[in-house]
Design a protein around this nucleic acid. Structure first.
Length: 484
RNA sequence: GGGGUUGUAGUCUAGCUUGGUAUGAUACUAGUCUGGGGGACUAGUGAUCGCAGGUUCAAAUCCUGCCAAUCCCA
């Protein structure tokens, strides 16, 4: 009785299957990743949440650097006159822009936008910095936040009015080089998300309707969440000369002829953290992939009295040092007055990938008990095998990706008939079905089913089938889904 | 865009209809016993009841506005 009461108070009180939305919010709050800020749609990141972001950031930074991309920083305010320079871009973002209209008590004539994205500002600067082909390529990434007012219901990490992200902006002398860059970035994104967060993604192109406003085309990576909804995990845009013309990003080529430059922009946000929570979490709380876990291993010492303590703690220290020397992020939970059971539940809620239990019994047996978070399996590990923990963490990482892949493929189905489409869409999932390429059909499908084209996967051109809606010859087989 | 619901210690909650400054649990602090899956006892601390007005001798309670969270429909 007392134990079930305690469980209700500090653990997750709903199951992932029965109330996904509530489950998600509870995991975010109770695992102490984030909390609500006093303003609608804004959240505060707590250290455990921010640490995951820092881990992703550091991985991306290394990969960006290898690709010749350096970091810069842009201010948050953009004058309206500048934001409006590319018409379609402005029209797309305008409804959700926060405006600064006063400085102190004085009204600002050219009001200032809190950046919804920085293309316009970055390219104003770029046009000053670029004169010659020798200045290209110019590849800068910016870690910052963007602000887009969310009127609809908000969700921590998934839909917030301010979000942490990185936006990369590159400039090239040729179309070919720019397009290659778009693909390189998408590849970095895909590999990082799969390797670090253990979430499988599908990459491809957005439809004309869903592309980034102002882009020539948008490439994207999409994932399916356990509730059957699709989540956009990151995008990499080919901007062509759509921005270089209005912003006069020009360069003199080797032949001394002036050309407009070719540009790309791309970004991933803390939505990735939301995806990680949804994909891996369970009824006990968060489950962290070892690579991004702030703590990879937690050691829980168990003893009944001072005598036991004297036996156990030196061994705990020894193991901790051994693990630390292998760059494993380890924490010893030496809190007094808490039962081991309480601690187990606590660390499971917080998603620590591996727990080591060590008490007098283990000292006798010259082994420890290890408990894996992702499958809740316990086993014993001899003192001489402590070195294997690094491998075990790698295995956990792999198993998590494998499980996520199985889940994703179960939620991906091929559909050829529209009535089947309509009946399946309520169950959620990725619906792969052929399409004629016409906006009209895309819009009708969205209107009638709520599903949109999430991604047109690479190599999905197909002219041998019929459009699921109009029955005319198909062009491709996109993935339709309802999205976040 | 339209329509609901909710807001009381860190967390959950009683009280609200029928106005009289607040119930219980958990957490927290101290101590003793405990300790291998959310431990027991004892004693404490902690709330101007989301915010701002209004009605009233008196407001958590009634009224108005706002803020925030959440759900449903488009």
């Amino acid at each position: 009785m007392a134990s079930s009461l305690g469980k209700e108070k500090s653990g997750i009180t709903v199951s992932k299957n029965s109330d996904f939305s509530e489950w998600y919010t509870q995991v975010v709050l109770k695992a102490k990743l984030a909390d609500y800020a006093p303003v609608k749609g804004l959240i505060v990141l707590r250290p455990d949440g921010y640490s995951i972001w820092e881990s992703l950031r550091s991985t991306f930074d290394k990969k960006f650097a290898k690709n010749g991309i350096r970091n810069g920083f842009l201010p948050i305010l953009i004058p309206e006159s500048l934001l409006g320079k590319e018409e379609k871009h402005f029209a797309g973002f305008n409804p959700e822009v926060f405006w600064v209209t006063h400085s102190g008590t004085n009204e600002i004539g050219d009001r200032l936008a809190l950046r919804p994205t920085s293309e316009t500002l970055a390219y104003t600067m770029y046009s000053k910095w670029i004169q010659s082909w020798r200045d290209l390529p110019l590849k800068i990434n910016f870690w910052n936040t963007a602000l887009r007012a969310e009127i609809k219901a908000t969700k921590p990490f998934l839909r917030t009015s301010e979000f942490l992200w990185q936006e990369g902006h590159t400039v090239h002398s040729t179309q070919e080089e720019a397009e290659k860059e778009v693909m390189k970035i998408l590849d970095i994104y895909k590999k990082t998300v799969e390797d670090e967060l253990a979430i499988p993604v599908v990459t491809g192109k957005k439809s004309e309707k869903e592309k980034f406003v102002g882009a020539v085309y948008t490439t994207t990576m999409e994932s399916i969440m356990p509730d059957g909804k699709a989540l956009q995990m990151g995008t990499s845009h080919f901007l062509g000369q759509n921005f270089s013309k209005p912003f006069e990003v020009k360069f003199a080529d080797k032949d001394n002829v002036e050309h407009f430059a070719w540009q790309t922009s791309w970004g991933v946000s803390w939505r990735l953290i939301g995806a990680m929570i949804m994909v891996h979490g369970d009824d006990k709380g968060l489950v962290l992939p070892p690579k991004v876990a702030p703590m990879q291993v937690v050691i829980v010492p168990i003893y009944k009295n001072d005598e036991g303590k004297e036996i156990v703690l030196p061994k705990v220290d020894e193991i901790r040092e051994k693990l630390e020397s292998q760059d494993i992020r380890v924490h010893v939970d030496d809190r007094e007055g808490m039962s081991p059971g309480y601690k187990f539940n606590d660390w499971e809620l917080k998603g620590v990938p591996l727990r080591i239990e060590i008490g007098p019994k283990d000292i006798e047996n010259k082994s420890v008990v290890i408990a894996k978070r992702h499958n809740l399996e316990k086993s014993s590990l001899g003192f001489s095998e402590i070195d294997k923990i690094s491998e075990i963490l790698d295995e956990i990482q792999k198993e998590m990706l494998k499980k996520a892949k199985e889940q994703a493929s179960k939620n991906t189905i091929n559909i050829s008939d529209y009535s089947e489409f309509k009946s399946k869409i309520d169950e959620g999932g990725f619906l792969c079905t052929s399409w004629c390429g016409k906006l009209e059909c895309e819009e009708k499908i969205k209107e009638e089913t709520g599903a949109e084209i999430r991604v047109i996967p690479w190599d999905s051109e197909n002219i041998t089938q019929k459009c699921v809606y109009c029955k005319e010859q198909s062009k491709s087989v996109p993935i339709f889904a309802r999205g976040y």
